[in-house]
């Protein structure tokens, strides 16, 4: 039997998927991340969505500028270590006032095993804010749906870049023993 916590842990990627569909997102750019694996699978199986695997997160930022210029809505999925890769490309969004929805799974902040994740995890929010991105944070699994929904509305209704940081506490510990 699943505990409530386990149920919440498995449900939130499906909730994000539903929000993306309701929002009319048709382009999904991503650099793979374990925290996003279920959502990526759902998007890949969805006919109305183009999923594009990237070599680096900044490619996704540039791509989604093009999507919006062409009248489509997109989302960028990545982990916090990729935020640093995006900074200069984000200037396009501020200068052209383009909408962007970034869903960032956090590393290096809670129960982390790998010390190399800590520097970027610690500066993710500040780096995004400094690059002109509005930052929202989802600390608990039950907050994720509403936070993503509100961020999508803010991004696409006001033409601004918005990031949701999905905190590491939601994702859980990575098991390093297997």
């Amino acid at each position: 039997m699943q505990t409530d916590q386990q149920t919440r842990a498995t449900v939130w990627p499906d909730q994000i998927f539903d929000v993306l569909k309701e929002t009319g997102v048709t382009q999904v750019a991503y650099v793979p991340d374990a925290g996003h694996s279920k959502l990526i699978n759902r998007c890949e199986a969805e006919k109305s969505m183009h999923t594009v695997s990237l070599t680096s997160e900044e490619e996704g930022v540039a791509m989604l500028a093009g999507s919006w210029m062409g009248g489509a809505k997109g989302v960028l999925l990545m982990q916090s270590s990729g935020v640093g890769n995006c900074i200069n490309m984000l200037s396009m969004f501020q200068e052209c006032r383009l909408p962007l929805l970034m869903l960032v799974t956090m590393r290096g902040v809670w129960g982390e095993f790998n010390p190399w994740q800590v520097p970027m995890g610690g500066s993710t929010a500040a780096a995004l804010t400094g690059a002109g991105v509005i930052v929202h944070s989802a600390e608990r699994a039950e907050d994720i749906r509403d936070t993503v929904h509100a961020s999508a509305l803010l991004a696409f209704q006001t033409s601004r870049p918005v990031a949701v940081l999905i905190q590491q506490r939601v994702i859980g510990f990575k098991n390093w023993s297997k």
Binding site: A62, A65, G66, S67, W68
Partner: peptide
């Protein structure tokens, strides 16, 4: 470094 990717997003849209 982003021009080609802007083109990809536009081409898919």
């Amino acid at each position: 470094g982003g021009a080609a990717m802007v083109g990809l997003g536009l081409a898919l849209a």
